[in-house]
């Protein structure tokens, strides 16, 4: 009993600590003081200030733009890559798998520097494309990692069956393989988006200096002083969005596992 109480309080203590910085910002998003810790009365003022803050709004739309574009590119390139690797001969397969996982072990700062040097070496000016390449390098291995297990679970005969029944290879790919691995493609896409949204280092190195994302904007601000007050309001909004996403995915997972259980019961 004592042990159980100890265990529960240990878990809850660290959970609380994990949320302490975020909750502090959320609480102080309802007062207009410059510094966290000063309470100057309840107000929604910072929320109004946030939506009037052009700089932050532009940075937010840039962040979403690069996340969506890079995740789409990464998902297409990575899914085709994963399928191609899966059907390659052993040597090509091993080589591609090894090189493809380099960005996972490579520190972000090395990826960022190496790409920057490449662009400087080739005399390419930093623009949206260089930033896009940076984000695709970052997210691509995770798309491949998400798709690969679904390919392994797939019944290898259905593609052959489609060809025997007269489907062209491209048609069979689209109508047979892609639907089978769709959950993997989807989770790869979501993972690519979350990684891109959160990135600072690669963005800071490969972007054009006029292109601010949320990460680079916040970084320049917090180097000079406390988090700008209107960004406390932004934290509350991001937190609520994350909470909704967690609840929705959790409900989906439950529904799926309930469905699977029901199917299994029916089969028995």
């Amino acid at each position: 009993m004592v042990k159980k109480i100890f265990v529960k309080s240990y878990v809850w203590l660290f959970l609380l600590l994990m949320y302490l910085p975020i909750f502090t910002l959320i609480v102080f998003s309802f007062t207009e003081a410059t510094n966290v810790g000063d309470w100057t009365g309840f107000s929604f003022g910072l929320y109004a200030k946030l939506f009037k803050d052009q700089e932050t709004m532009v940075a937010l739309s840039n962040t979403v733009l690069i996340a969506v574009v890079s995740a789409v590119v990464s998902t297409i390139l990575g899914t085709l890559g994963a399928i191609g690797i899966f059907y390659s001969k052993k040597r090509a397969k091993n080589a591609l798998e090894l090189v493809g996982q380099i960005p996972v072990v490579n520190p972000e700062i090395v990826i960022a520097l190496s790409l920057t040097i490449l662009f400087v070496f080739l005399g390419i000016r930093f623009n949206f494309l260089t930033l896009l390449i940076g984000h695709v390098v970052l997210t691509l291995p995770f798309v491949v990692l998400s798709v690969r297990p679904k390919l392994m679970q797939m019944d290898p005969n259905i593609y052959e069956a489609a060809l025997d029944l007269g489907a062209s290879p491209i048609y069979a790919l689209r109508k047979v393989i892609v639907p089978e691995i769709l959950p993997g493609i989807f989770s790869g896409f979501l993972l690519a988006i979350t990684l891109s949204l959160d990135d600072f280092i690669i963005t800071a190195f490969t972007r054009n200096n006029s292109f601010q994302t949320l990460s680079t904007l916040v970084q320049t601000k917090i180097k000079k002083g406390p988090i700008p007050s209107q960004l406390r309001a932004l934290t509350t909004i991001i937190f609520l969005l994350a909470l909704v996403v967690v609840i929705v995915t959790n409900l989906n997972l439950r529904r799926q596992s309930a469905k699977i259980r029901r199917q299994q019961k029916n089969e028995v």
Partner: peptide, 20 residues
Amino acid sequence: MPMWINFVLRTGATRDLLVW
């Protein structure tokens, strides 16, 4: 879940809390 909140923002939040 904290990992869904922007990493730089979280770092700044930790700093501001520690300063406080």
